[in-house]
Every structure is written in structure tokens, then in C-alpha cells.
Write a protein that binds this DNA or RNA. Structure first.
Length: 282
DNA sequence: CTAGGATCCTGTCAGC
DNA sequence: TGCTGACAGGATCCTA
């Protein structure tokens, strides 16, 4: 799914199209993709908490949207704005087989597509957004978390591997599978290092690099979800240009030239340089 | 309490 | 061509 930078990019992009527009009708094509009762109203603002988007209406109702692994938001109006999990749906005719919810506005239609149905749209009163079970648990993002807070949390999970721990949104918020691998690579930390072995300086490094890699992605417009057309006519993923290690197994490490490898850590595909990221402490 | 694995669901791809 | 298993940019639930 889109991680924090992609969701932030969607927030900014979608705001251009639906703020001040009126949501007039909701069509639910998959029951599990919409929680609560449909609402109508004019969009006042779009907020983001971690990887969740909140669309606030002017009548104290809100829609919380989480794209999870394969969610997409495609606004079809005078022009089309498409974002989320990259696929042909961005340019396809809509609705289609993967369309789960259709939100009709006064000047366009917002399609919520989600191949695996893990994502959802939830209607709730605006005042209950911040006390929502998911939102409430979120840890601070890399821009606001302190080194002390992350370091202390890692000590509470001293026997867990560092990678799945920084994917936990209640530990540090915003990282997903791509940016976790990228941040650990830049920090020269092996994804299977036990949290108990991570030093205070290394915790600081993880925060700094998570921030750097996500800022770089936001600055380039959530580059990892966009596609471009290569000289030979085939499409490429900006992710290929952006990532140092993600989906680059077999290629040389940009730092030392060693072949990058892919392993499995806590069930997730994990990319690293076996030379730059040592399992044992220096 | 932690840590690990299974699970939700659909689709694609590699290998036989 | 058809089948099978592995895998997938997330998060929760269950078990030991």
C-alpha cells in the first residue's frame, strides 16, 4: 500500500479536486469496504494521520479512508486524478471489477478501488476521529518523535527484530515495507538486529533517515506510486529510480558494490546489503 | 506482557 | 494450457 509519503501526496492532490465540493451520493459495491452509514455534505478539509486520510465535511461528519495494501483513489471529473497502489486502473474505464465504493460529488466521481479488500472507508462524526481506536494508537511520526521515545520503546521489544518493530505504527508512525528497508539501509543496520542491541545513536539515525527518505519521496510527488514511459515504450516505476535496495536484489549496492539480497523477516520481503548492514554490532 | 505466525482477499507470476 | 504454490508497499488476531 501507499506509505506515509504517498498518502500525504494523495491528501494534497485530492484536496485540489474535492475541497468545497459537495458529496451527494455513495454507492457501496462491497459491504466490507464501507463501515458505518453513508453521509452527504460539503468537503471542508482533508487531513492525514499516519497512513489514514480523513475527509472532513462541513456538517460534523467525516470519512476515514485507509488504503492498506492495494487501495486506490481515482477522481474522475473534468480531469482525472489517480493515486494509490499502482495499476492499470489509473487509466481504465471506471467503475470496474475492483471498484468497492463510489462517492459522487457535484462535479465529479471519486472511485475507491481495492483489489484485496483490506482497505476501507469509515463514516464517523468529526469529533470522534481522534479517539478512533486506530488513530488513537498511532505513535508520533519521524518528524516529531524524540530519540528518547523511540529508544525507550525499542527496549520494551528487545528480543524482536528491528524491521518489524519500526513497521509497527504504535512504535513510530508512517513507515511501510519500502521505507523501512530504505531507512535501515541508510542507517547501516541489519533488519534482523534485535531491538535490544540498537544504540541510542542508531535510534537517532533511524529517525533521521526515515525522515530523509520520506521527505525525498514527498518532494518528488509520492514518486514510488507513479509510473512513467521509458524510451522503449514500456512503463517503469519511479520506485526503481528512487530505491537504493527495495526490489533491487541481485544488483550492486550503491555504497560498496556488493550484491544486494532479499530475505524474509517476520513474513515480509526484506532487502539489504549484506556488507553494509551487519548482523553483529561493530 | 511479548513474539511469532496465521489471517483477511484477489491477482499475478514462476515452475512444473 | 492447466495446475500449484509463493508472493504482495498493511494491520489485526490468535497462540504459546
Amino acid at each position: 500500500m501507499p506509505e506515509l509519503p504517498e498518502v500525504e501526496t494523495i491528501r494534497r492532490g485530492l484536496s485540489q479536486f474535492i475541497v468545497k465540493k459537495k458529496l451527494v451520493k455513495t454507492t457501496i459495491l462491497c459491504d466490507k469496504s464501507f463501515i458505518g452509514a453513508p453521509v452527504t455534505g460539503t468537503v471542508k478539509d482533508i487531513r492525514r494521520f499516519g497512513k489514514a486520510l480523513i475527509i472532513d465535511l462541513d456538517n460534523h461528519n467525516s470519512l476515514m479512508i485507509h488504503l492498506r495494501m492495494t487501495g486506490q483513489l481515482i477522481y474522475d471529473g473534468k480531469e482525472r486524478y489517480a493515486a494509490g497502489h499502482p495499476s492499470d486502473n489509473f487509466t481504465a474505464k471506471l467503475p470496474n471489477k475492483q471498484t468497492r465504493v463510489i462517492l459522487e460529488f457535484d462535479d465529479g466521481t471519486l472511485y475507491f478501488n481495492d483489489q484485496r479488500k483490506f482497505g476501507f472507508i469509515k463514516a464517523l462524526p468529526t469529533k470522534e476521529v481522534e479517539s478512533d481506536a486506530f488513530i488513537k494508537k498511532l505513535a508520533p511520526e519521524p518528524w516529531t518523535i524524540t530519540v528518547d521515545e523511540l529508544y525507550e520503546k525499542l527496549q520494551h521489544h528487545k528480543n524482536s527484530c528491528i524491521k518489524p518493530t519500526i513497521l509497527d505504527q504504535t512504535i513510530i508512525c508512517g513507515l511501510g515495507n519500502i521505507y523501512a528497508d530504505e531507512a535501515l539501509f541508510l542507517s547501516h543496520i541489519h533488519p534482523e538486529r534485535k531491538c535490544g542491541t540498537i544504540t541510542r545513536n542508531e535510534a537517532a539515525l533511524i529517525i533521521k533517515n526515515a525522515k530523509d527518505v520520506m521527505e525525498k519521496s514527498i518532494a518528488s510527488g509520492g514518486s514510488t506510486m507513479a509510473t512513467y514511459v521509458k524510451a522503449d515504450g514500456t512503463t517503469g516505476d519511479y520506485l526503481e529510480l528512487f530505491a537504493n535496495v527495495f526490489r533491487r536484489e541481485g544488483q550492486p549496492c550503491p555504497h560498496c558494490g556488493t550484491k544486494l539480497i532479499k530475505i524474509k523477516v517476520a513474513g515480509r520481503g526484506t532487502h539489504l546489503c549484506p556488507h553494509c548492514q551487519k548482523r553483529s554490532q561493530e
